[in-house]
Structures are given as structure tokens and as C-alpha cells.
């Protein structure tokens, strides 16, 4: 059976996870890098069977190459095409899917083979369930599974693909870098604070916990938008920053999906909440059911002594 896979890559996010998921299906795995040569070079070290590079020109967004990438995919006729959920990757994937006449499925967490079919398990009902979908033909999937560290002792040569000038239908005018919240994006430990905190004065408690833990501080959207206790670069969630710390401690946060999608890649999530029904308890590793005003002071001393 043809189990050839193509993985569309526009940055390194989830590249290892996608490679791992595709490899398990048994066929040859090709990385189709749409971006810089440097990106293709680092992808070539991860263990793909083949690395193609569609090198983009300065000032032209990767999406402008969508049709060219789709044509090349059509010629290669992979059975499976994956992309991460980045907005650029998803758009390129759509173009390839249309050319291949492929089934499209989003939020795919796991992939398997069953006879002649691919079975894609996608997250549904807000992450509460997995739905197993049997796909008899070509599948384009937006991969949302675990990322995996990948590396290979034998890097493959990068094959530069011939690209035509895509013209000026799309061009970059400027990139505006957001003011970075000192280290939040790369922090190993983060304390997240939600509306469970009763007043601004109580932020002292969060400051002390962050200091004891050597952690960065983050917050939910209403803590920024409604309370104005933090600037927006501290908000974590679907419409703001995505972080991947080793340890995230959520204090007084209910765990709405818009917040939780920002910490999906956190390794260990601890929640402190006084509502036994809080959604976050369905979505964390450790849940302390209790009043934050009683628990956090003890957490501070525990981290001071042990952490």
C-alpha cells in the first residue's frame, strides 16, 4: 500500500511530532519546507527520508507559493499530508488537499493504519473525546498531537525545488514585533493567574509564588482586559500567547478552552481552584481543591524549601 507522507513545514513547531506520527504508518516521509534554506537545513537533521525546500523570496509570504507546492504534491501523490495548526501551514495544506482531492480533518491527535485505510483520531467535544475516523483515500490532516524531539545521525541533503516568482498578488508590508513579556514564551516555569484572585493587592501573593518558584507570570484574558492587572503580552490562550513550560501552576483559573489551548504543550499542569466542578480539573495533571488564599502561602513555603 502507498503510505507515502508529505509534511508541510513552515517552522519547527511540531515537526518532530508530525514526523513521528507519519513514520509509524510505515511509508516514506518527505518534509516539504516552505520558507528559508536555513529552516530546511535544520529540518534535514531530524530524520526525514527526504527534504524538499521551496525557498521563499524576501517580502513574499509563504502562502503565495501555495499552488506551486500543491502541484509538486500532486506529482508526488502522497497518501497523507500533514501540517501544524499555524495559520500559514493550514492554508498551504488546504491548497494541497484541493489538488489531491483529499479528505481534510482538523485537530488530529493520532494516526494509525487499519487494512487499506488510515484511521485519524481527532479531538472533539472540546478535547473531552477522541473520534476515530476511517479514511479510505488521501488524507490531509492538521496535526495537533504531541510534539516529539527528533534528531538523526544521518542528515539528508536538502533538495531545492524550482520555484517561480509568484508575482505581487501577496506581499509583506511590515512585521510588527510585540513587546515581549520578558521570557514568558521560553520560561521553564509559569504561574498563571485568573479571576479567582479577588483584588489587585493580592497579586503580591502571585509575585511571591513566582519568585519562590523562579517562574514567569501569566494571566487569563479577563485579568488583562477587565481587571487591567497585566498587559496583554502576559495573556496566555488561543488568541494570545502559546507557551510550553515544564511546569504551569494555574491559580484561580476556570480552564476555559480559549485559555487551555495556550498551555497545551506544557509538560505538567497544576490547578488550584475551590470549585470541584471547575473545568480545569478535567484538563490538568494535579488539581488542588481548595481556597487559593490558604493554598498559595503554603506553596510559597514549599517551593522556598524544596523547589
Amino acid at each position: 500500500m502507498n503510505m507515502k507522507s508529505w509534511i508541510i513545514i513552515i517552522d519547527e513547531r511540531r515537526a518532530g511530532g508530525m514526523l513521528d506520527a507519519a513514520k509509524k504508518l510505515g511509508g516514506q516521509v518527505t518534509a516539504a519546507v516552505v520558507g528559508s534554506r536555513a529552516l530546511a537545513d535544520s529540518i534535514a537533521k531530524l530524520g526525514f527520508d527526504q527534504v524538499l525546500c521551496f525557498e521563499t523570496a524576501e517580502g513574499i509570504p509563504a502562502e503565495a507559493y501555495a499552488l506551486q507546492v500543491a502541484e509538486a504534491a500532486k506529482a508526488a501523490a502522497p497518501r497523507l499530508v500533514l501540517a501544524s495548526d499555524s495559520s500559514v501551514g493550514r492554508m498551504l495544506l488546504g491548497s494541497v488537499a484541493a489538488k489531491l482531492n483529499a479528505t481534510m480533518i482538523g485537530a488530529v491527535r493520532l494516526l494509525a493504519v487499519d487494512g487499506e485505510s488510515i484511521v485519524a483520531s481527532r479531538s472533539t467535544a472540546d478535547g473531552k473525546l477522541l473520534e476515530d475516523i476511517e479514511v479510505p483515500g488521501a488524507l490531509a490532516a492538521i496535526f495537533d498531537g504531541e510534539d516529539v524531539e527528533a534528531s538523526s545521525t544521518k542528515p539528508v541533503p536538502v533538495e531545492l525545488m524550482p520555484v517561480e516568482d509568484p508575482g505581487t498578488t501577496m506581499r509583506m508590508v511590515e512585521t510588527i514585533e510585540a513587546e515581549e513579556a520578558a521570557g514568558l514564551l521560553t520560561a521553564a516555569r509559569v504561574v498563571g493567574v485568573g479571576v479567582g484572585l479577588a483584588s489587585k493587592d493580592d497579586l503580591k501573593l502571585i509575585d511571591d509564588l513566582a519568585a519562590a518558584m523562579h517562574a514567569e507570570k501569566a494571566c487569563t484574558l479577563p485579568v488583562c482586559d477587565d481587571m487591567r492587572w497585566f498587559p496583554s503580552n502576559r495573556v496566555v490562550g488561543s488568541s494570545h500567547s502559546q507557551i510550553a513550560p515544564e511546569l504551569y501552576i494555574a491559580v484561580g483559573i476556570s480552564g476555559q478552552p480559549q485559555h487551555m489551548s495556550g498551555i497545551r504543550d506544557a509538560k505538567v499542569v497544576v490547578a488550584v481552584n475551590n470549585d470541584p466542578e471547575a473545568r480545569i480539573f478535567k484538563n490538568c495533571d494535579y488539581g488542588i481543591l481548595g481556597d487559593l488564599y490558604k493554598v498559595v502561602p503554603e506553596l510559597i513555603s514549599a517551593f522556598k524549601n524544596n523547589g
Partner: peptide, 28 residues
């Protein structure tokens, strides 16, 4: 569509380990 859903199931991820915070010192 020749694509078919084989149904839904709970993911294999273990549920959260709940810790009673009534005794905060023991909980921490």
C-alpha cells in the same frame, strides 16, 4: 463522502490526580 466515523471514546490520558486542599500543608 467515503469517510466514516467509527465513533468516539475517551482519550487514554489519565485523569488529574486530585489533592484535597483542606489541609494546605499536607496538600503542598
Amino acid at each position: 463522502g467515503d469517510v466514516s466515523s467509527k465513533g468516539t471514546r475517551f482519550p487514554d490520558t489519565p485523569p488529574a490526580r486530585m489533592i484535597d486542599g483542606k489541609d494546605p500543608v499536607a496538600a503542598c
